[in-house]
Computed example of a mutant assay.
Amino acid sequence: MSTTIALVTGAGSGIGKAIALAFAAQGDRVVAADLDLVAAETTAKEFPDLITALPVDVADRNRVDVLRDRTVAEVGVPNIVVNAAGWDRTDQFLNATTEFAEKVVAINYLGPVHVCSAFLPGMIEAGNGGRVINLASDAGRVGSSGESIYAGAKGGVIALTKSLAREMARYGISVNCVCPGPTDTPLFQAQDEKLKAALIKAIPFRRLARPDEVAAPVLFFASESASFITGQVISVSGGLTMAG
């Protein structure tokens, strides 16, 4: 692959931040995109010569297009795209409002759709191949009580990954998916204490994942070691789920 330029959404905190920093730590150029620009700028400060912070709302296709145009103009055409932005709030399905459901789907499913739709044409035109890595969730593989709509959206990301992998193979672009289990992020820490304790107890390793442990397989999928791997899904959950 040519000089690496990695676009990472949701790079202001949690897993997305860990991914952005991991790419920069190995000397790659990174665009750290986040709804919270201040948070993205904080990420960028750790590698100011390598990371460019830009704002985006992945649920808004127009703002994703602005991100694409600024990325290309200020950094270049990315050859790695990581869809790490996500959002959820745990509650029973019967309590979910239409507005909540639409927000979950807009961010967690349509977000990757918008980003891929915006950036893939430029990657194809560049003719250098590339990598797309989508962050889904083990909830999308096996379901999760209290996260039915989120699980459905993340299941859609898994199916999107596999389908895009088939379409993008002719251009030398791989598309793979990483599914985190419970991870020590601000989103997880905002959950109910009893729920957090129950999840940790259910994990065979008896602890949460660290964000950098989720970043590791993302970097693998982006590396030359994964040059013949596409359409695959890997869980990072400490054995909480062992989906086939």
Rank of each mutant, 00 (worst) to 15 (best):
I107M: 00
E167V: 01
A44W: 11
S237F: 02
R89A: 06
L164H: 13
A22I: 01
K194D: 10
V64F: 03
P182W: 02
P186V: 14
I133P: 14
L35C: 06
N108V: 04
V233Y: 07
G172V: 03
F221D: 11
V64A: 02
V175N: 05
A11N: 04
W87V: 03
I133E: 11
L199N: 05
V81Q: 05
V157P: 00
T9A: 09
I51C: 04
G146V: 01
N134P: 11
A202M: 01
D91F: 06
V113T: 06
A39Y: 13
D34T: 11
S137Y: 10
L240T: 01
V157F: 03
Y109L: 15
I80G: 07
M1V: 11
S13M: 13
E125V: 10
S223C: 07
C177Q: 01
L50I: 07
A136V: 04
F228V: 03
Y150P: 08
A106Q: 02
V58A: 01
P121V: 04
S237Y: 00
E213C: 02
V236I: 14
G10R: 15
S225N: 07
V66E: 12
Y109W: 05
V233F: 10
A118S: 12
L219I: 00
S2G: 05
S117F: 12
V66P: 03
G111T: 00
V38S: 08
C179T: 13
G27T: 04
G152S: 14
A226Y: 07
G14H: 15
V113C: 08
K103N: 08
D69V: 03
G231M: 13
Y150E: 10
G129M: 13
A226H: 09
C179N: 12
V233S: 09
T4Y: 07
R141Y: 02
E74H: 01
A53C: 02
R170M: 10
A96D: 14
K196V: 00
A96I: 04
V113H: 12
G111H: 06
S237W: 05
V81F: 07
D91M: 13
K196W: 02
P186F: 11
A18Q: 13
I158E: 04
I5N: 05
G146R: 12
L67V: 01
A243M: 04
F93W: 15
A6N: 07
T9M: 10
A33P: 13
F119P: 06
S144T: 02
L37D: 11
A6V: 05
L120M: 07
V30E: 04
